[in-house]
Design a protein around this nucleic acid. Structure first.
Lengths: 209, 209
DNA sequence: TAGATTGTTAATCGATTAACAATC
DNA sequence: TAGATTGTTAATCGATTAACAATC
């Protein structure tokens, strides 16, 4: 990743990875940029340009080896980094994520969660312990997390993010309905604004029927 | 919306709406494209270009009236359309959405959910009845839904989407880890690929620490 | 009227697509 | 070797930014 890679390319990487996994499940050994593009709704040019941001993974006259390319993508995405991640706010959404979402398949190890509700603190969700927000500093010393999922109320998201940044958190997966304030240059934030997403769907739907 | 509006602009509309709501909460009456841009991390030019895709909402020498602009955006986003929406798959995520997410603030009325688990069918989540997938055709006759949230297993998402399209569904909010097959031209799909999102975060995080 | 700020046109920038020599 | 397909450069397209006349 010598020169800067554009966000547009980065956003496509997980999709390539997902598609290659499916190809491999189907026993496909090699694939050309043309087939890959057709299968994913991209042009062959774009596929080759994208991969060549990171290196020459193909072979002239042959194409790309599915397994090798998948491994390269896993490395680029750092899926084996094992970053430790915590969840702030142990509500319904946290519940859904803990029970259904495989953090380890996406580069993270979920270590614990935090909340303020007395009936939650001290319990576990699916082996993940829930601590009180007052214990945040203390437990971050113990767990040394790298990233945090924000499923807390939007009103406190900014303050919590700043508090976590001070504790060494360098990545946020933000599910709150707010945008976080400007963070340090080495801290990244990935927003999942469900409200924005549903509004977009509404906006794009054809009226009448 | 005479000429085609680019997806990049559409994606910004909910953010403008959100920001304007906050301004109004804070008692701000009018705002210039420069201030709005500064507050949102956009250029003044971009703000003006964006709004002018839909009409001249501002006034020279004054700027934009916050309330009026917010109303224009609500209209563009069709937030009062009241599209009826159903949920396919009444698992943890559906639970989280039903309990915490205000569909009506985003242009939709949630009417019912579907699942196949015997212990779920016949029950309700927060007033929303859960029917069996076998009753899909029948209940769609009753509820006449316009859109569907897909929180079902990815393996069946494609088949379900086709079944729903045949029943008149014209919009999908897709939480499954798959991309839906090509749909009719008038059917739109908004993907929430959580896995892609978290992988992107992982990829963008600085290594080491 | 003078100052401010829009709406809009032109210039720039970046991303996608096309073309083709290199080579497996 | 001939055919296929990459890696890479050049051309095109679209989106963002800058500039400025119009006007409140």
């Amino acid at each position: 990743m010598a020169q800067k890679v554009s966000p547009a390319v980065i956003r496509r990487l997980p999709k390539y990875y997902r598609y290659l996994k499916e190809l491999q499940r189907n026993g496909v050994i090699r694939i050309s940029s043309t087939s890959l593009g057709n299968g994913m709704g991209l042009t062959a040019s774009q596929v080759r340009q994208d991969f060549n941001c990171f290196g020459g993974f193909g072979q002239q006259g042959y194409g790309y080896n599915v397994e090798a390319l998948q491994n390269e993508l896993a490395a680029i995405l750092k899926l084996n980094a094992g970053y430790r991640i915590i969840i702030i706010g142990a509500g319904n959404l946290a519940h859904a994520l803990i029970n259904n979402f495989i953090f380890s398949a996406n580069g993270f190890t979920l270590v614990c969660a935090f909340d303020v509700a007395p009936d939650k603190v001290g319990t576990q969700i699916h082996d993940i312990p829930i601590y009180h927000m007052d214990e945040l500093e203390q437990m971050c010393q113990v767990y040394q997390p790298d990233a945090a999922v924000l499923t807390c109320p939007g009103k406190i998201a900014g303050a919590v993010a700043q508090r976590l940044t001070a504790l060494g958190i360098r990545g946020f997966w933000n599910f709150t309905n707010t945008d976080l304030p400007a963070l340090d240059a080495d801290v990244v934030c990935e927003n999942v604004h469900l409200s924005d997403s549903l509004m977009t769907l509404c906006c794009c739907m054809e009226k009448g029927g």
